[in-house]
Structures are given as C-alpha cells and as structure tokens.
Design a protein around this nucleic acid. Structure first.
Lengths: 226, 226
DNA sequence: AAAAAAATTAAACTCAAATTAAATTTACTA
DNA sequence: TAGTAAATTTAATTTGAGTTTAATTTTTTT
C-alpha cells in the first residue's frame, strides 16, 4: 500500500517507516500539517496515518481540511492522548479510525488492512457506474451500451456521471448548473438542454428503452427499472 | 440511523437500545448470529453493531459471512476481549471498526457517526407520502397504488401532494387555487375540477376504494381509513 | 322537476423543452 | 505560435406535452 505517515517525533516516525516497509508498504514521511495537506492533494494514498500533535496545524485540522476539500482517503488517527473526548473529536473531524500510543504493531497493521479494504471496495465499485444496461467507465471515460462503446466529451461525461450518481430522483436544471457547470448564476442559458440532447443522441437514440426522462417543469430523471 | 444491534447479554443489549434510541436512532435487537445474518440480508441498516461472543455463530463468522455475500453495511465490532489479537481477527473478518467493553457511550456515538458518514452518501433518504395503499414518491415524482407505478404531470403531482399533505379535512377550491396555482383571483376557472378528474382517472378509477371524495358545495376531501 | 354544482370531454392555446445551426472558445498539432 | 479541429456555448426555430378554456353531460340538492 501507499501510505502517508504524518508524524513529527523522529523516533516514532522511523519506527513506523521501518516496520511498515518491512511489510512491503510504500511510505512517505511528513512532519507537519501544511505539507501533509499538500502531499495528500497531490498523491493518491491508500491510507493516511496522522498524528494529532504535529507542528503548523494539528492533526484534527488536517483531517477537517481534507474532508472539506472532498478528499476521501481513509485517515487513521494516531496519538498519545487516549481520552474518550479526544477520540470523539478525532472521529468527528473526519478520521476513519483511531489508535492510541503505545500500540502493538500488529494492531496497526490490522487496522490498516481494514481501512484500505474499505477504500479498495469503493474504488473498484466506483470505477464503473451502471444503470440497467448502460455502463459508465470512469477509467476509460467512455460509456457502453448494448456491446457498443460510446465516446463522450468531458462535459457530456460529467453530466452523465452526475445523472447516474443521482439516479432515481428528479434533478433540476439549477442543480445541474451548480454541480456540473459549477455556476448557479446564469439562469438564462440552455446549455443543459443542448447537452442532454447530445447525450441522448449517443446513449438513447438507438435503443428502445430510454435512460433519460424529461419531467416537464421540473428537470430530468434517470431511473433504473426494478 | 437504522441500526442492528447483535448482542446476547440482556443488560448490555437494553443499555445500548435505550441509549441509542435516546439519540433518535432506530434499533433492531438480535441475540444470535444466524438471525443477525438473516436480518442484515433483509434490511438495509446504516451500521451493524456486532458482539463477538454470541450464540449460534460468533461475531467473527457473522462478519465474514456477510462480507462473503457482498454485504457492505459498516460493522462495528463490540467485545469484552481487549487483546490485540482479537482486534486483529475482528478487523480482518471484515469489521470496519472495533470497540472494547467497557466503553464510554459518547465514543460509541462518535464511531457510529464516522462509520455512517461513509455510507450515508449512497443511501438517498426515502421521501414518500402515503395514504392507505397510495404512495406518493417525492424523489421519483410518481405515485404508486396496488403495485402499479403511475406517472403524473407537474400540476397533477402538486395537486395530489397538496391533497395528501392536507388529508382528513375538507379543502376548498379557493384554497387549492391559492396554494397549488398560487392565484386566488380567477374564480371563474374550472381547472381544479378538470385536474381532480385527471387525477381520479389515474389513481381512483381502477380501484374499488376511492381516495378523493367530493364534498358538494364545499370542496374535496382525502381521508385515511383509521 | 328545476336549479345548482360537479364531472366529463374535446378542442385551443401556451410555454417548456427539443432541435438545429452558427458563433465562440479551447485544445491540439505542425 | 499560427492554424485547425474539436468542444462548448449562444441563439433562433420548431415541436409537443401539459395546461387551460369552454361547452356538454351527469349528479346532487332543494
């Protein structure tokens, strides 16, 4: 696994690095909060091991900031403070697990396994979104339907992804404008209508059952027949 | 949240039930492994709180079995055994978190929050109004009755929604005109009569018991038989 | 039985959405 | 870095589902 270890005490840091590398993990060390955020933004780690007591910005702040940005990387909080209140704060800040020093190394390994497994599942799942016979491949950035591979432009892809992720409920134009075009301002534009039309030509036109449905006066809905 | 608590010690079970219900969670209690699996298969819980020491099939087995089936519900293992080995086993069995008895209740709550947050995104809350056997799905913007899905136009939907939200009392035309058509002025129009007719055709025509009743000289009423 | 109220039907209208084309912006390539 | 292709956006036009009006029939009340 690719791990980011945020820890300022050199002894603990090198202990972790050595132990984890022995288990064939790839470790990046970092000793303050600011850098930790930077690293987490620029790299895709399997788990972030985060000490609470670090310079610049404490671990709680780091966790909060990452979650605020939408970063979903599992965070394992690590700290000497073992009081329940501390744990509560850590978990509420966005940590996924919490381990109190001193700990046994094999417990750390087990928790890492549990955390990474979780994310792995999510990642695997999220690589391909499906809606009935339509597939949206997030890796290849293409759609597939009825054995056919359908190329999509960036905007077409984002729109379709948003629709599928929000299947089974009505999506308003305003909502789409905010989430896919990130501008809730221009209410006069008809880009959405045009793009819905583009997508329909590609994924619905040649098929008897349609994926995208218009709700006049409301917006659009994409639903799976159950 | 909807929680499944798998715990055989009556004292602990009722303590958990009471404490969690005070936080407005919906609790299902279960005291053995076999039933736990059955319940987890048949219901969609936000988190499963799972004791390791339970009759029939221990918690580890339950977790493994659920994961083997592809069940992704977050599992919080709960146990008196605090040794690291136990934790490792639990986490490797597929648990997402681990809490050792005795624990402070607020830590349990924090861990539950952390666990559910992950999954919460996926579960879109079910917004459904019901009146006897009629359902009005606010997400899909459709009605359902007797297993049939009924499409409604925007106006039809708004009107039916207003009627159901104001069930068990007489609604005047003026009121409907104000609230659904937001114009109390035009008193000559008969749109409402026409739309009541539209709705009746869709939701009452094919069913012996009627939902919408006319109160001559007054308006309409929609009532639930109690 | 007459009058009033409501239900029903059909036709007219309206505006939201679909479509098309052209203008503009962005991305790529030589 | 200019030229070109692709993608995105704007704008104009067409279409049709949804809404409304209005006329007719049925039901209810007095």
């Amino acid at each position: 696994m690719k791990l980011l270890v945020v820890e300022d005490e050199p002894k603990v840091a090198s202990f972790l690095k050595q132990g984890l590398e022995e288990q064939d993990h790839e470790i990046t060390l970092c000793n303050d909060g600011k850098n930790a955020i930077k690293l987490a933004q620029e790299n895709q780690y399997d788990v972030i091991i985060l000490d609470i007591m670090i310079p610049q910005m404490d671990g709680l702040e780091v966790a909060k900031e990452l979650r605020r940005e939408g970063n979903k990387t599992p965070i394992l909080m690590l700290t000497a403070l073992g009081s329940t209140d501390e744990k509560v704060l850590g978990l509420d800040a966005g940590a996924d697990d919490y381990l109190v020093k001193p700990f046994e190394f094999k417990e750390l390994l087990a928790r890492l396994r549990a955390l990474s497994k979780r994310n792995l599942n999510n990642l695997l799942e999220q690589k391909i979104l499906t809606l009935n016979d339509l597939e949206l491949d997030l890796n290849l950035r293409v759609a597939r339907r009825g054995g056919q591979t359908i190329d999509l432009t960036t905007k077409e892809f984002s729109l379709l992804e948003y629709l599928i992720r929000n299947k089974n409920r009505v999506i308003t134009r305003t909502e789409i404008l905010e989430k896919v075009w990130d501008s809730g301002f221009d209410s006069t534009t008809n880009v959405i209508d045009v793009y819905i039309n583009f997508i329909r030509k590609k994924i619905d036109k040649d098929f008897p059952t349609k994926i995208i449905h218009t709700m006049v006066g409301m917006g659009y809905i994409v639903k799976s027949d159950t």
